[in-house]
Structures are given as C-alpha cells and as structure tokens.
Amino acid sequence: MRSILLVKTSSLGDVIHNLPVVSDLRRHWPALAIDWVVEESFAEIPRLHPGVRHVLPVAVRRWRKALTRRDTWHEIGQFQRQLRETCYDLVIDTQGLVKSALITRLADGLRCGYDRTVAREPLAARFYDCHYAIPGTAHAVERNRWLVAAACGYAPDLPLRYGIHANPDAGASPYCVLLTATSRDDKLWPETHWQALGQTLAAQGLRSLLPAGSPRERERATRIASAIPGAETLPPSSLTALAGILAGAQSVVGVDTGLTHLAAALDRPVVALYVATDPGLTGVHAGPRAVNLGGRGQCPAPAEVLNALQALPG
C-alpha cells in the first residue's frame, strides 16, 4: 500500500470524526501517503494531523451558489485536474453522500464506500467499486474507522487516537472555554445556565473564554460574559487559532457544535451539552476525558455540568 485518498468534505464535526482514520492507517503503514479532500472552510483540520500529506480543498458549497459563473467552472476544472494528478491504491469515501461519491468517482484509484443499506444517501453507493456494510448503530468515529479497516483489510482494533497537534495558547491564568454557539437555536443551552456556570468557575479561579464568530453569536456571548467576572468574548478566529485556544484550556464546556468535538480530539477535559439531539451516534467520543450530558428534550442543569467537570480526569 503506497497511497490513499480520503474523501470527507464536511461538516466540521464530521471532518474531526474522520481524523482517527489517519492515525489507524499510519499505525499499519508508517510510510503511507495519505491525501484528503475536504471543504475549503474546514481544510485547516486535516492539516493539524502530521499523517496527512496533502489536503485537497473543494468548494462545493460555494460553487453551488455560482454555477452560472465562468470562474466557478474554471475552479472546478482545476480541482478535477489536481484530483487526478495521483493514482491512488484506494479512494475511500467515509461520508456516504452523493456529493462525496461523485468526487470519489472522479479520482483515480479503486473507489470504496458504504453499502447502499448504510450509506447516508443510498444513491451514493452506485459510484463505488467496492461496498461495505458497516453497522449503522456504531458511533460515527467508529463507522469511519471500520469502513477504512474493511477496505484496507486490517482488523479495526487499534486504540482510538485523533493524532492532531496544536500549539497551546499561553494564557496568563488558567481558563475554561465555553462554546455557547451552534448552528441551530434548539441546540442552545440557556444563557442563564451559562452565566451560573461561569460565575462558579470564576469563584474557583478559572477565567471563562467565549469564542464567537458571527455578529449574532458575539451578541449572545457578550451578554453571557457580562454576568461572569473576568470573562472574555473572543474575536472571530481561524480554526488553527481556535485549536490553540482549546489546546491550552484547563477544561471545555460546549453545546452540540464542531468545536466541542475539536476540543475532545485535542484531549482536553470536555463536557458536551445536548438539549435537542441524541449524542449516542455523534456525541463527543474520545475516552474518559470527554463526557456527553443531556439528550433530545433534555436540558442539563449547571450543577450537573459542574459535577461532570470535577469528575473528569485532569
């Protein structure tokens, strides 16, 4: 085995869930060349793993909005040429969507993916040369690992390792990162709960840092921080910079969002909060230092979160 192309384009959490695949492959073949196709907005994540040789950014999300423009088709042509510069031993689509399957089909190599009975979009399976029926009840991280193990012919029994590295932010005092923003309002944890949590953390000598990207997220984070002594709302940052902030945190509390998974992948003590979704298949999955609280129709209380934080290994 000389080279493999992984296709996992989005979203942020899904891309992070695919990182252990690289660690598994490099454990079996230390000299293996591993390339990765990913949406341009998430390209910084595979670059955090030293086992990834080349990251091939794709812009499906942006191209969809500008299909009538000549420069869009020029970019698409450039991407196709870049994709076919290398003949891979295997091209593995761990996403199982039609868009990722089409990208897989364009690449040069034996194309592998989920069987139609388990692919997220069954039509995707028509574009693969080899199909694998991976149990749909397993966590997303394990489904990725089992698919690649089946395609490559090894037992999926290695210890879980995300394998990414980030330079920790050298803060003047210990801090906890509060990830208060997410893509859906029904996934949000109440502002009063965040304030109560932050106030207790402040009394324990921990600063609260609240990353926020969009203006709406910043407004909410600022309201929360205003009631927490010493709390700081952080300006919009790159994923690489955010990884450094998370890597330096004493602990992280976050809602159902990709950055919470990134904190877990960086081996920080993490409490993930779920109020509208079930964490069983897609919650944080990184061993004893990451715990999921809540679930669909549930809302963990601040006291539960504090107890969970205190119980996590340091």
Rank of each mutant, 00 (worst) to 15 (best):
A138Y: 15
R27N: 02
A243F: 07
G77M: 09
V60Y: 01
K65V: 14
A150W: 08
A301P: 00
T200I: 12
A166K: 03
A66T: 15
V58I: 15
L259I: 07
L234T: 06
V37I: 15
C299Y: 02
G136Q: 13
Q199H: 01
R53L: 04
T9N: 06
V60P: 03
D93N: 01
G113Y: 02
S238N: 07
L209E: 03
P215G: 03
I45H: 04
V305W: 00
V38D: 05
N167Y: 07
L25A: 05
R61P: 05
L201Q: 09
R70Q: 11
P135C: 09
I34D: 00
A286S: 12
K187R: 14
V58P: 02
E232F: 08
T282S: 13
P20S: 10
W63T: 10
D71E: 15
S214L: 13
G163V: 00
P235E: 03
G171N: 11
A150D: 03
P235F: 10
W194M: 08
A263E: 11
L197V: 11
R116L: 10
G77E: 13
K187A: 00
W146S: 05
I34F: 02
Y154P: 06
S3A: 15
G163M: 05
L102M: 15
A125C: 06
E191C: 12
E44F: 00
R61Q: 13
L206G: 05
P57G: 06
G244Q: 12
L178T: 06
A140Q: 14
C112W: 09
T68E: 07
Y175R: 04
G13P: 12
V148P: 06
L19K: 06
D14P: 08
S11H: 08
S183D: 00
K8D: 04
P46N: 11
A264Q: 09
A265K: 11
N18I: 00
